[in-house]
Computed example of a mutant assay.
Amino acid sequence: MPYEYVGPAEILRRVDGVAGRPVRSPADLDEWLAERRDERDEPFTFVVDGDGTLLIAPRRSEHVACAGGRPVLAAGEIAFDGREGRWAVTGVTNQSTGYCPDAGCWPAVAAALDRARVPHPGGFTDVFVFRHCPCCGELNLVKDAHYVCVFCDADLPS
């Protein structure tokens, strides 16, 4: 199921093309990470586009810019380690407040990584739950299964 962008409209208006780098092979990942030696200590932004391709961008990039404003099959943050001479995913989440993907998007992430032949942990290393408040409309990050809006105390959909 594709996820539409649900973040601030002003961020979407600034999108100019697809900012994410496609990763279709280990060589694609090697090349991109070689250009980012100073950034490899923190996770990167990623999306899986509508064709099932992994796109990655620097961490402070907006997911919607990474995706070129298009719907995605998954979005979050991803970290890599290359100590064994080959890059592998060491951390991957669904943390994207622009798309708010649920944990059910993992199969799209796994398929994209498998096609690119990038080893991964087999599931999200951290899962985030997002809910928009039906009363005030604010986006909430649900913690500890506490489905209450932090802005207005209304109950959030479970």
Rank of each mutant, 00 (worst) to 15 (best):
M1P: 09
P2T: 08
Y3R: 12
E4L: 13
E4I: 10
V6K: 05
G7Q: 10
E10W: 07
I11P: 06
L12S: 06
R13Q: 15
V15A: 09
D16A: 14
D16I: 08
G17C: 04
G17I: 03
V18D: 13
G20V: 14
R21A: 15
R21D: 11
R24H: 14
A27F: 14
D28S: 07
D30E: 08
W32S: 06
L33R: 01
E35F: 02
R36L: 14
R36W: 08
R37I: 09
R37A: 14
R37Q: 11
E39N: 08
R40T: 15
D41T: 00
P43R: 09
T45H: 07
F46Y: 03
G50P: 05
D51A: 05
G52I: 11
T53I: 05
L54K: 11
L54Y: 05
L54I: 12
L55D: 03
L55M: 04
L55F: 05
A57D: 11
R60I: 09
R60G: 13
S61R: 06
E62W: 09
H63C: 05
A65Y: 13
P71E: 09
V72M: 15
L73Q: 12
A74H: 04
G76M: 07
E77M: 04
I78F: 12
F80I: 13
D81Q: 12
G82Y: 14
E84M: 00
E84A: 13
E84K: 04
G85A: 12
R86V: 12
W87L: 09
G91N: 13
V92M: 00
T93G: 00
N94K: 07
N94W: 05
Q95S: 03
C100A: 12
C100H: 03
P101G: 03
A103C: 02
A103F: 02
C105L: 04
C105F: 04
P107H: 00
V109S: 09
V109D: 08
V109P: 11
A111P: 02
A111S: 10
A111H: 08
A112F: 05
L113A: 05
L113Q: 01
D114T: 14
A116C: 06
R117D: 13
V118R: 03
P119T: 00
P119K: 00
H120D: 01
P121N: 05
G123H: 07
F124C: 08
F124R: 06
T125P: 05
F128K: 07
P134H: 01
C136E: 00
G137D: 09
G137Y: 06
N140S: 03
L141V: 15
L141Y: 04
L141K: 10
K143P: 01
A145Q: 00
V148H: 06
C149R: 09
C149Q: 08
F151V: 14
D153F: 01
D153N: 11
A154F: 10
A154K: 10
D155A: 10
D155W: 02
P157E: 09
P157G: 11
S158R: 15
S158Y: 11
